[in-house]
Amino acid sequence: CHSECLGNCSQPDDPTKCVACRNFYLDGRCVETCPPPYYHFQDWRCVNFSFCQDLHHKCKNSRRQGCHQYVIHNNKCIPECPSGYTMNSSNLLCTPCLGPCPKVCHLLEGEKTIDSVTSAQELRGCTVINGSLIINIRGGNNLAAELEANLGLIEEISGYLKIRRSYALVSLSFFRKLRLIRGETLEIGNYSFYALDNQNLRQLWDWSKHNLTITQGKLFFHYNPKLCLSEIHKMEEVSGTKGRQERNDIALKTNGDQASCENELLKFSYIRTSFDKILLRWEPYWPPDFRDLLGFMLFYKEAPYQNVTEFDGQDACGSNSWTVVDIDPPLRSNDPKSQNHPGWLMRGLKPWTQYAIFVKTLVTFSDERRTYGAKSDIIYVQTDATNPSVPLDPISVSNSSSQIILKWKPPSDPNGNITHYLVFWERQAEDSELFELDYCLKGLKLPSRTWSPPFESEDSQKHNQSEYEDSAGECCSCPKTDSQILKELEESSFRKTFEDYLHNVVFVPRKT
């Protein structure tokens, strides 16, 4: 048989008469490798580009789960590009990614509803959504962080984005990388972005840091009482949809009607710091009717980097990364020049730590249904340095008659930039024990000054392991946590139920 035959053949030295091919099969003959313009397919066939392209389009058009959109890589027609490569849609070739590779997620039936953290986790790592997304989240724990972890990498949506009755959302900033909504599939009414009845939605994105392009379709905003109209108009300008909307697409009466839409800028007039305090004062603000001013709200939190936005980490279910302080308005003076500047002394802060701070007014709604208010920009203030805590785990070892090696770990709280350490030492008198000992005694162990690591005695271990207080009263049991108490109650309830079950099964009433 021919060298490319495997198993047997019907005619000697003829690659077209093989029972099976050793390498690849091409047009009725066995070959060692697939010549151009053919590609290896499933490690035994040679196919042309049209064959591989037909497989790709067949799966793409069917949208069946589990099928493969075949691509070409290293002269092979394979189910998908290997790690580190992405497909070129024009020629199906796998090309190296520039940075992290995109991950295209194809949605069944063309859309997916995100109504819980669990459903959001199914899209973790996706960068391109081939379909439409509907966000409908009523509640949950730590929602802002969970949504950002699972949806934060999405850069492109081919269909539309719909935010509907998501009472738990305060902001859409968890879509931190969303840059493009194509609108290839539109919501009824030709809408590519749809926001309806979101009672706590206050911000779409921080438009000073976020760009969003909507290729096709219109915007729809109705019944978002805490979303200011200025935020919607800003989205029109940034996304390129200005002029597409009709009169009733953006409701003037049901958007922002319960919001404090600040239209003035508060400026800080005085800032002073110490290692654990920050004193702030800002310019006074009074609405047209000074009785509408209820006070100020001061927001602050630790910020290692200057990239904080107002609604980071917030949701309507209680999660809030900001510390909020309510401040009463100052006494009002008739003389504008003698107006008191409101302020606040922030206490209990960490030394040498940068804080993000902003302040906003708290006002009631005027009778004319106009909203007044003022808010400052987010500023960054760093507390002063102070003395560091003591170095940890000092170790001293003498390696000769004239040297001592000293080692330690950095302090747990540096409280500033540590530039150097101060080492103090003092000579001590020799131990009298060394002169009084009889060095001729056998088995004498000389006193040693070398360091030995501390260890816990058996008594201390027994005390720590004991669940009861000892007789001397030195140790006591740790208080039980809520989960331990709940577990004990469940076990007790189970024992009672099981005992009742045994009584009912074992003891049967005697027939009379």
Rank of each mutant, 00 (worst) to 15 (best):
K103Y: 06
K103L: 09
V104H: 11
L107A: 09
L107R: 05
L107M: 07
L107P: 12
E109A: 09
I114Y: 04
T118N: 15
S119A: 02
S119Q: 03
S119V: 10
Q121V: 04
E122W: 06
L123W: 04
G125Q: 14
C126R: 00
I129N: 00
N130K: 06
G131R: 00
G131C: 01
S132Q: 03
I135T: 01
N136I: 02
I137G: 13
R138Q: 14
R138P: 11
N141E: 13
L143G: 13
A144N: 03
A144L: 09
E146W: 09
E148V: 04
A149N: 15
A149E: 10
N150T: 08
L151V: 15
L151G: 01
G152V: 02
I154G: 00
E156Y: 06
E156V: 05
I157T: 01
G159T: 01
Y160W: 04
K162T: 05
I163K: 02
I163Y: 00
I163C: 06
I163Q: 00
R165T: 15
S166M: 12
L169W: 01
V170Y: 09
S171F: 09
S173W: 07
S173D: 10
F174S: 05
R176P: 11
R176V: 12
K177S: 09
K177H: 07
L178E: 00
R179E: 10
R179V: 06
R179Q: 06
L180Q: 06
L180F: 12
I181G: 00
I181M: 03
I181R: 00
G183P: 02
L186S: 08
L186P: 07
E187V: 07
I188C: 04
G189W: 05
G189R: 04
Y191V: 08
S192H: 01
S192Y: 00
F193V: 13
F193K: 00
F193D: 01
A195Y: 00
L196I: 13
L196V: 14
L196G: 06
L196S: 10
N198S: 05
Q199E: 14
Q199R: 12
Q199G: 14
L201Y: 00
R202G: 02
D206M: 05
S208G: 14
K209C: 14
H210M: 04
N211C: 11
N211G: 05
N211F: 04
N211Q: 12
L212C: 02
L212Y: 02
T213L: 09
T213C: 10
I214W: 05
T215N: 15
Q216F: 07
Q216V: 09
Q216A: 11
K218Q: 04
L219R: 01
L219E: 01
H222E: 10
H222I: 02
N224Q: 11
K226V: 15
L227I: 10
L227D: 00
L229T: 07
E231V: 03
K234E: 14
K234L: 04
K234V: 13
M235R: 00
E236K: 09
E236S: 08
E237P: 01
S239L: 11
T241M: 14
K242A: 10
R244A: 05
R244I: 06
R247M: 10
A251H: 07
A251D: 04
L252R: 09
L252T: 11
K253G: 13
T254P: 06
N255P: 05
D257Y: 07
S260Q: 08
C261G: 02
E262L: 02
N263R: 10
L265K: 14
L266R: 00
L266T: 03
K267H: 08
K267S: 12
K267C: 09
K267Y: 14
K267E: 02
F268W: 10
Y270R: 05
Y270T: 07
I271M: 09
F275Y: 04
F275M: 14
D276G: 06
K277S: 08
K277N: 15
K277L: 10
L280V: 15
W282R: 00
W282A: 01
E283T: 12
P284M: 13
F290M: 02
R291A: 07
D292I: 07
D292N: 11
L294D: 12
L294H: 09
G295A: 14
F296K: 00
F299W: 12
F299L: 06
Y300N: 08
K301T: 05
A303M: 05
Y305K: 02
Q306F: 03
E310T: 11
G313I: 14
Q314Y: 03
D315M: 07
A316N: 10
C317L: 12
C317M: 11
C317V: 07
G318S: 15
S319V: 09
S319N: 13
N320H: 10
S321L: 10
W322D: 01
T323N: 14
V324T: 10
V325G: 02
I327N: 01
I327F: 05
L331T: 13
L331I: 13
S333W: 02
S333P: 05
S333C: 10
S333Q: 12
N334R: 13
N334V: 08
Q339L: 13
Q339P: 09
H341K: 08
G343N: 15
G343I: 15
G343V: 02
W344Y: 03
L345Y: 14
M346P: 00
M346C: 05
M346Q: 10
L349I: 05
L349K: 01
P351F: 06
P351Q: 07
P351E: 04
P351H: 05
T353S: 12
T353R: 05
Q354T: 04
Q354A: 08
Y355M: 02
Y355T: 00
I357P: 00
I357G: 01
I357R: 00
I357M: 02
F358P: 00
F358S: 09
K360I: 13
T361E: 12
T361H: 02
D367Y: 14
R369M: 11
R369T: 07
R369G: 04
R370Y: 08
T371D: 05
T371E: 09
Y372P: 10
G373I: 04
G373K: 05
S376F: 00
D377F: 03
I379M: 13
Y380V: 05
Q382N: 14
T383V: 04
T383Y: 01
D384C: 07
D384A: 14
A385F: 06
A385K: 11
A385P: 11
T386Y: 12
P388E: 07
S389Y: 05
V390N: 14
P391H: 03
P391L: 07
P391T: 06
D393T: 11
V397K: 15
S398R: 03
S398G: 12
N399M: 15
N399Y: 05
S401M: 04
S402W: 07
Q403F: 05
Q403I: 03
I405T: 06
L406F: 07
L406P: 00
K407W: 15
W408M: 02
K409P: 05
K409F: 12
K409H: 03
P410F: 06
P410V: 06
P410E: 13
P411L: 02
